[in-house]
Simulated scan of single mutants.
Amino acid sequence: MSLPAAIYFAVFWIYPFLSAGYYSFTDYDFVKSPEWTGLDNYRFLFSDPDFTHSLRVTLLFALGTIIPTIVLALALAVPLARPGRTSTVLRTMVFIPAIVPLVAASFLWQGIYAPNGLANKMLGWIGIDGHSWLNDPDWAMRALIVMVIWKNLGLYMLLLIAGLQTLPQNVYEAAALDGSRPLRTFFQVTLPMMRKPLAFVVVIASVAAMQSFVPAFLLTRGGGPGVATLTLPMYVYRNAFGYTDVGLASAASVILFVILLLLSVAQFRVFARGER
């Protein structure tokens, strides 16, 4: 009964992964047969300023989206985890962006960031001049980060609410009997018991941020202006389908996989050590 799932996993996950690993050691352009070049692609990557720049941009994008999103999600999850009609309505409102297709959300925010879009109109209401958000190298990345925070906040909030609702209530009753204030209860009771849910959310948020492609592709026309939003997935796409250098793109994707693997293992170890 597991055979269909195993076939799907082998065809659409294992085979592409192994193929990318093989092509990363070759010179391949979709037309001619792959030609073995050894480590040449990897040597070129670490001497390519666009690649090192894409690594910095990806790290900046990941930090700019992961930390604020999880902090806001936890701040919303704690009060909205309580049962009640108001909490249910507010949870639904915050979660709505998470079910909006990413392409549709990107086009929505493209309109918001337009010269006559909602963002500039709201600034005009308080007497501030509008801005060319997506055409300014200093603001394009910040605009992407705001859009991604809006998109992911509801999902991470819901995951944290699920974790909060599994916590034993007798611990909170004991803290209340000891006269613990809400802020102290949060930092000394709630936060330590939320290590596993937080570890899960941090890991999936990190993977999603490091693999983010659609917002940069649609909002900034493929990493623009210039290379201001050239993330590592955009670098892979540009080399594979823009320059038809599949070998170089495969090498970059292998490096991305290694970074994600090491990052995930390190995060789980940090949270496990803290729990012990």
Rank of each mutant, 00 (worst) to 15 (best):
L76Y: 02
L262F: 13
L177A: 10
D138V: 11
M193P: 01
I67L: 13
Y15Q: 05
A205R: 02
V94H: 02
V189C: 11
L260D: 10
A105W: 00
F9T: 09
V78T: 07
V236L: 05
S253E: 08
M193T: 06
M194R: 01
A199N: 09
V31E: 14
A228P: 00
M1Y: 09
I204S: 05
L63E: 02
K151E: 09
A114T: 06
W150M: 05
L108F: 14
L219Q: 03
P16S: 08
T88Y: 11
F186T: 01
G84W: 07
L90E: 00
F257Q: 11
S206T: 15
N239I: 03
T69R: 02
T220C: 04
G124T: 11
E35K: 15
D50W: 04
F187I: 12
G154M: 03
I67Q: 06
L63N: 00
V236I: 15
P168T: 06
I67A: 11
A20E: 03
A104P: 03
V203S: 04
A119M: 14
A176K: 14
T244N: 13
Y15I: 13
T244P: 09
L108Y: 09
G224S: 08
L144M: 13
L72W: 03
S24G: 12
S132Q: 14
P16Y: 08
G111Q: 14
A174E: 07
G154S: 06
A62I: 00
A208G: 11
R238L: 10
F241E: 05
E35L: 14
A143Y: 03
V78K: 02
V31Y: 15
T69K: 01
A252W: 10
G154H: 02
N135L: 12
A77D: 01
H131R: 13
W109R: 02
A228Y: 01
N135Y: 13
R273H: 13
R56P: 00
D48Q: 03
Y113R: 03
L232V: 15
V227T: 15
S253C: 11
G274F: 11
R195H: 08
A205D: 07
P115Q: 10
L3V: 13
A114D: 12
D136T: 09
G124D: 10
L153F: 01
G223W: 02
A114V: 06
M147N: 07
P79N: 06
G224C: 07
M122Y: 12
G222T: 04
Y28C: 08
Y243G: 06
Q165H: 06
Y23N: 07
R273G: 08
V254I: 15
L230C: 00
K32H: 14
A119H: 10
D138H: 13
